[in-house]
Computed example of a mutant assay.
Amino acid sequence: MRELRKQLIKEIEKNKEGELAALFNILKESKFGIRQPLIPILLVSLLKDYWDHILIYKNGMVVNDLTGNALYGMLQAQMNMFIIIINLTTKNSFL
């Protein structure tokens, strides 16, 4: 799992904007061989410290209500979902 997390973080840090499918594909690689029903659970749990900084877009709009079922549905439908990573710190906060 450590190597899998490293690969996911490497992808996020390399591409601050990209397709959500890129993260799914890392999990599906034969090297890791994660079954599709487990991908949403593992994705969220392995990136738990990044998850609050990830915005997911579909058709130019942010997906607000993202549940495990919704994430799994996106994976099944092979939707063109995009992610943007935003590093929110107190330095760039509006408060």
Rank of each mutant, 00 (worst) to 15 (best):
60 G>V: 00
68 G>K: 03
64 N>P: 01
3 E>P: 00
92 N>Q: 12
39 I>Q: 03
10 K>E: 13
93 S>Y: 08
62 V>H: 01
48 K>W: 01
26 I>W: 11
9 I>D: 02
82 F>L: 11
2 R>P: 00
71 L>F: 04
90 T>Q: 09
61 M>L: 06
38 L>K: 12
68 G>T: 06
12 I>P: 05
13 E>W: 09
3 E>Y: 13
31 K>L: 09
4 L>Q: 10
90 T>F: 03
13 E>I: 05
27 L>R: 14
16 K>E: 06
50 Y>N: 10
28 K>A: 09
15 N>A: 10
7 Q>T: 05
10 K>G: 04
26 I>Q: 06
55 L>F: 10
67 T>K: 03
29 E>C: 03
61 M>A: 05
65 D>Y: 11
45 S>V: 00
81 M>F: 04
1 M>V: 07
87 N>S: 14
38 L>P: 00
29 E>L: 13
24 F>D: 07
30 S>I: 08
70 A>G: 02
57 Y>F: 15
52 D>V: 06
53 H>E: 07
57 Y>A: 04
51 W>F: 07
37 P>M: 04
54 I>W: 02
42 L>R: 14
30 S>P: 07
5 R>F: 02
65 D>H: 08
3 E>R: 15
22 A>L: 13
66 L>A: 05
92 N>T: 12
93 S>E: 12
78 Q>S: 11
77 A>V: 08
13 E>N: 15
90 T>C: 01
6 K>S: 12
28 K>G: 06
2 R>S: 15
19 E>C: 05
57 Y>Q: 06
77 A>D: 12
66 L>F: 01
7 Q>P: 01
29 E>K: 14
61 M>F: 04
91 K>F: 08
45 S>N: 13
43 L>E: 06
28 K>P: 03
92 N>C: 04
87 N>H: 14
80 N>T: 07
14 K>I: 02
18 G>V: 09
56 I>W: 00
33 G>T: 06
42 L>I: 11
2 R>L: 08
24 F>S: 10
28 K>E: 15
87 N>W: 02
1 M>L: 09
74 M>D: 01
28 K>S: 12
35 R>L: 07
10 K>A: 15
54 I>G: 07
77 A>G: 01
45 S>L: 05
79 M>L: 05
67 T>I: 02
67 T>H: 01
45 S>K: 12
51 W>M: 10
88 L>N: 11
76 Q>C: 03
13 E>L: 15
82 F>N: 08
69 N>L: 11
23 L>V: 03
3 E>D: 08
70 A>T: 13
93 S>H: 08
74 M>A: 11
57 Y>G: 05
21 A>E: 11
60 G>W: 00
15 N>G: 09
43 L>M: 14
17 E>R: 15
14 K>F: 13
89 T>S: 12
3 E>N: 10
62 V>K: 03
53 H>S: 15
26 I>S: 07
93 S>L: 05
63 V>F: 01
87 N>T: 06
92 N>V: 12
27 L>G: 11
68 G>F: 07
90 T>H: 14
31 K>A: 10
66 L>E: 12
70 A>L: 04
4 L>F: 11
83 I>T: 09
49 D>T: 14
69 N>H: 13
17 E>Q: 12
84 I>L: 06
42 L>Y: 15
91 K>M: 05
79 M>P: 00
54 I>N: 05
20 L>E: 07
25 N>Q: 13
34 I>P: 10
87 N>Y: 14
49 D>R: 08
83 I>Y: 15
